[in-house]
């Protein structure tokens, strides 16, 4: 026998005492002549078959992870087909809808609390057939878009300024951090005083609300760019405006788009606030009207419009990410 078995059998403090030392255990199989080892494996039924995964031999501490056949009931590939992935996205909303419909039909959900889905669909049809929805939507989206554009412009410029320059940060950032904590609803009375009750006031309120998400994300994204990358670019002659345009803005773009997503959402939120006060048109006006008339079916139909707007914002930003960030690994996730 080789020196290996001597080491195991000697009372060394490092060697774990094996049960029945001297009997060739699996760990010592290299000391056993090959023919003998094969024979013992074939003859002893206790040795687990290799298609049972992760078996453990308590005597030797050997964990067998080998696997010959795939385990039953689980496919080898875990990639879901495209159709199934799409279906999974709408599964939860459909389930909620089904529960709602069932609850209304059986009388579990009284119409006073929540109108039934068919009633809401009728209300939706009414809004469309009278052109109220289309008119309101076009007016509202224009307000949100113009307000968002102003907000984005200010937020981007301020975010780049504070991100790029230490002076800019010292000058502006603390003020921005203070003002961002002001709820935009609280600013409404002031805006009415400054801008009146016309379109300007509504757009100003939306713009004010949209500045901060884009500002914060732009600032953070610019600051998150690896200084070593900027150092290298400077060594290779990229400076000033070219450095900002070609290196800093493209590499801050993932963060800027996160800010854009938030700002677009906020523009819709601010829209409601702006339109429920002193308005005679737009989505918020329709909601306020429906509320006064106790028309819950109309309110539900309009809430549905808002959710669809949210969906469109998401799709829009995903599309932007795909076109602007081809260099990123996974933009939309797996």
């Amino acid at each position: 026998m080789s020196s290996k078995s001597v080491a195991v059998n000697s009372p060394s403090p490092l060697a774990r005492p094996l049960p029945g030392a001297g009997v060739p255990s699996p760990t010592l199989s290299s000391d056993v002549p090959a023919s003998e080892a094969v024979a013992s494996e074939v003859s002893t039924p206790e040795i687990p078959a290799s298609d049972v995964p992760a078996s453990e031999d308590p005597a030797s501490g050997v964990r067998d992870l080998s696997r010959v056949a795939p385990p039953p009931g689980r496919p080898r590939t875990r990639v879901r087909p495209r159709v199934l992935r799409r279906a999974l996205r709408v599964l939860v909303p459909l389930l909620v809808l089904a529960a709602w419909a069932a609850g209304s039909a059986t009388g579990l959900i009284p119409a006073k609390i929540l109108d039934s889905p068919p009633t809401v669909v009728d209300a939706f049809g009414h809004l469309i057939s009278t052109h109220q929805l289309q008119d309101a939507l076009s007016i509202s989206l224009r307000r949100a878009g113009v307000g968002l554009a102003f907000g984005l412009a200010v937020g981007l410029v301020f975010g780049l300024t504070t991100g790029l320059s230490r002076l800019g940060e010292e000058l502006l950032d603390s003020s921005m951090q203070m003002v961002r904590m002001v709820p935009f609803l609280a600013v409404t009375p002031l805006i009415v005083v400054w801008f009146g009750i016309g379109e300007t006031a509504k757009i100003a309120l939306i713009a004010f609300a949209c500045v901060f998400p884009i500002y914060l994300n732009t600032y953070a994204a610019v600051r998150a760019i690896d200084p070593k990358l900027i150092e290298a670019a400077r060594v290779f002659g990229l400076r000033g405006l070219a450095l900002t345009r070609r290196l800093i803005i493209p590499n801050a773009m993932p963060g800027i788009l996160v800010g854009l997503r938030f700002s677009m959402g906020v523009s819709i939120l601010a829209l409601i606030a702006a339109e429920q006060i002193n308005a005679d048109s737009g989505l918020g006006y329709l909601v306020a009207n429906a509320q006064e008339a106790f028309r819950n079916d109309l309110i539900l139909a309009l809430l549905f419009v808002y959710t669809v707007l949210g969906l469109f914002i998401d799709l829009f930003v995903r599309l932007l990410e795909r076109t602007l960030l081809p260099w990123r690994a996974t933009v939309v996730g797996r």
Binding site: D226, L229, A232, F236, G237, P250, W327
Partner: peptide
């Protein structure tokens, strides 16, 4: 200079990194 890390600009294709600046 060649640094310890490649320091390639992630938003630029390889050939644009080569002629950077």
């Amino acid at each position: 200079v060649v640094f310890q890390e490649p320091r390639l600009v992630p938003s630029m294709q390889v050939w644009k990194n080569v002629v950077l600046g």
